[in-house]
């Protein structure tokens, strides 16, 4: 942890900070909520940058190119499947975000686990309902 030590000590390294594979299995819901929130947040941020990059063709290249590029991307099956992932990331991040804002207002701290399960269940329901819109 710290570089200033009073006595010689052994630093077990970064793996301790991140958690080892066998410890991941026993993580509590609150920790999973954190991991998922952070992961989906990074996914969405990355997508935002890519999204603005791709749509930028509308300005930099022109309208015809914009249509060609968008329709070209959408004709790829993998893009559509990934879009479901994007939608899932948004839905979970939004629902868990509401959970976090509740905590910030010191509401529901006692039922945080149940709220996490609720956000997971609702995410599944919403994403499943949304699947046809992405694949059809």
């Amino acid at each position: 942890m710290s570089k200033e030590r009073r006595v010689e000590s052994y630093d077990r390294g970064r793996i301790e900070d991140l958690g080892r594979a066998k410890d991941w299995a026993i993580h509590k819901p609150g920790m999973w909520a954190f991991y998922l929130h952070r992961f989906t947040g990074l996914v969405l941020s990355f997508y935002l940058v890519m999204h603005l990059g791709v749509l930028g063709t509308g300005f930099w290249l022109g309208h015809e190119e914009y249509t060609v590029i968008l329709q070209g991307l959408e004709s790829l099956y993998i893009v559509r499947v990934l879009e479901i992932g994007l939608f899932a990331a948004f839905v979970f991040h939004a629902l868990n975000g509401i959970r976090i804002v509740m905590f910030d207002m010191t509401v529901g701290l006692d039922i945080q686990e149940q709220l996490f399960y609720l956000s997971i269940a609702l995410s599944f329901a919403i994403v499943l309902a949304g699947v046809p819109f992405f694949l059809l």
Binding site: G58, T67, L70, E83, F87, F134
Partner: peptide, 14 residues
């Protein structure tokens, strides 16, 4: 995604 559908998006409807 739900009303227009991503693969129907064109410059014109944008």
């Amino acid at each position: 995604h739900f009303i227009v559908g991503a693969h129907h998006i064109t410059a014109e409807n944008t």
